[in-house]
């Protein structure tokens, strides 16, 4: 019983983190058809700026409770600046190119971002654990979990719900669906497609940075963390169906539970459980679980 509960909480906790770390990727793919490897770079930027800001704030005597605000703030700033620079500075010259070529473009951007991060923050690791322990722990069946874990779960739900509402219940969301459906026609209808692309990319970058920013208090932020997230978030969105927000959520849950199950029941399988699940899902549902009609992404 204790194991079953632990698997559920651990699975949910990991899934929430996975969802936050990959939702930006699926958004950008859904709208722009770009499989954005630079996503890892945004994640790292978010993590660095959040850890750096929290450290600065807390060490100069700021109350920890306010440091929570720095997390979304850091993600917003880092994601918006980097996203704008990348989209306006590089990507817009590449639109219309082939999907695979765009993967290479974003890989090149990722390499540049990696070193840029190193130039800004150096190679020493940053730790900013204060927010993670501010609210202490809760015991669930004799296993303590940090309250912060549950906050991450709530944030993941909120982000998912907000994206769903914006896309489906607002005018902007409906226009965006039109753009996804047919770029040329929507342009002819007077929709500013370029603006939609820019905004989508920046929002995607901010979400990527948020994934990093929110995990920063639980980890040690140092060079290389961006590369780790790339393939993991690919797996999540491929399982769920690329370009689907709901799919990303489902994919995150499946991967999260697969990992929690293997850790608690058969630890040696942990290393490749994710890829086994991914291969199994694709073998049965070639386009992922949530892939609806081809053009109806998101």
């Amino acid at each position: 019983m204790q194991t079953a509960v632990a698997i559920s909480v651990d699975g949910l906790g990991f899934a929430a983190w996975l969802f936050l770390s990959s939702v930006g990727l699926t958004l950008i793919y859904g709208v722009m058809r770009i499989l954005n490897i630079a996503h890892g770079g945004f994640y790292a930027l978010g993590a660095y700026s959040s850890a750096w800001a929290i450290g600065l704030f807390v060490n100069s005597g700021g109350a920890v409770v306010y440091s929570f605000l720095l997390i979304p703030l850091a993600a917003l700033l880092a994601g918006a600046i980097a996203g704008l620079l990348v989209e306006r500075g590089i990507l817009r010259y590449m639109y219309g190119r082939d999907e695979v070529l765009m993967v290479l473009v974003t890989y090149a951007i990722f390499l540049i971002l990696e070193d840029a991060t190193k130039l800004i923050w150096g190679t020493e690791s940053y730790v900013a654990w204060q927010p993670a322990f501010h609210f202490g722990t809760i015991n669930v069946m004799d296993i303590p979990y940090t309250v912060y874990k549950f906050i991450i779960m709530a944030v993941a739900l909120a982000v998912g719900a907000a994206l769903f509402l914006v896309l489906n219940k607002t005018r902007v969301g409906k226009l965006l669906l039109v753009v996804i459906e047919d770029r040329e026609i929507s342009g002819a209808l007077g929709i500013n497609v370029t603006l939609f692309f820019t905004v989508t990319f920046v929002v995607g970058a901010i979400l990527g940075a948020l994934g990093g920013a929110i995990s920063a208090p639980e980890i040690s932020v140092l060079p290389g963390i961006g590369a780790e997230i790339i393939v993991l978030s690919f797996a999540v969105i491929v399982i769920g169906g690329m370009g689907s927000i709901g799919g990303a959520m489902l994919g995150a849950l499946i991967v999260g539970f697969a990992r929690a199950l293997s850790v608690h029941l058969y630890p040696p399988a942990e290393l490749f459980s994710i890829y086994l699940v991914m291969a199994a899902v694709l073998a049965v549902k070639p386009y992922g679980l949530f892939a609806l009609a081809e053009s109806r992404k998101i």
């Binding site: 632990a6 698997i7 909480v9 651990d10 699975g11 906790g13 990991f14 983190w17 296993i143 979990y145 874990k149 995990s215 639980e218 980890i219 290389g224 963390i225 780790e228 990992r259 929690a260 850790v263 608690h264 630890p267 040696p268 942990e270 290393l271």
Partner: peptide, 17 residues
């Protein structure tokens, strides 16, 4: 005996176990 992947960063499940 827990063996998480190197550079995984998240060890919630292992710590629970």
């Amino acid at each position: 005996e827990q063996f998480p992947k190197i550079f995984a960063g998240q060890y919630g499940s292992e710590i629970s176990a």
